[in-house]
């Protein structure tokens, strides 16, 4: 069986939807973070697949994927730091316990 662009796009879309579902339903901040990472990686798969199948001469897609990986890593670092701070102050990482701010 030959892998085509379609296969990769379906994989990317499936990964994106799984991540979307997880981000909207997870109750733990770490779980939401992992789901968001899935969505970023779905985009990376798309970028690499488009580059390989549609524009084999160029490197734009691969470069973009590298940028996305780097920026996502920076984002996760900040996110984990925030989770750590809130855990120190209120000993919870579940979003339903974040209820000081409302109105």
């Amino acid at each position: 069986m030959n892998l085509s662009l379609g296969h990769y796009l379906v994989l990317g879309a499936a990964l994106f939807l799984i991540g979307l579902f997880g981000a909207l339903t997870r109750r733990n901040v770490i779980g939401i973070l992992m789901s968001i990472e899935l969505m970023f990686n779905a985009a990376n798969i798309n970028l690499a697949a488009f580059n390989h199948y549609l524009h084999p001469g160029g490197v734009t897609g691969m470069t973009a994927a590298l940028f996305v990986i780097t920026v996502a890593a920076a984002e996760v670092v900040v996110g984990l730091a925030l989770v750590l701070t809130i855990y120190r102050n209120s000993a919870t990482a579940y979003v339903e316990d974040f209820h000081l701010l409302k109105g």
């Binding site: 779905a42 989770v83 000081l100």
Partner: peptide, 30 residues
Amino acid sequence: RKSNEGAIKYFLFGAFSSAIMVYGISLYYG
């Protein structure tokens, strides 16, 4: 603790929207 909570909510929404946008950019490239 209010500051913590505001930051984590902002972060979750922000990261989520970035992920949607990056997926859009990958489709734009395609």
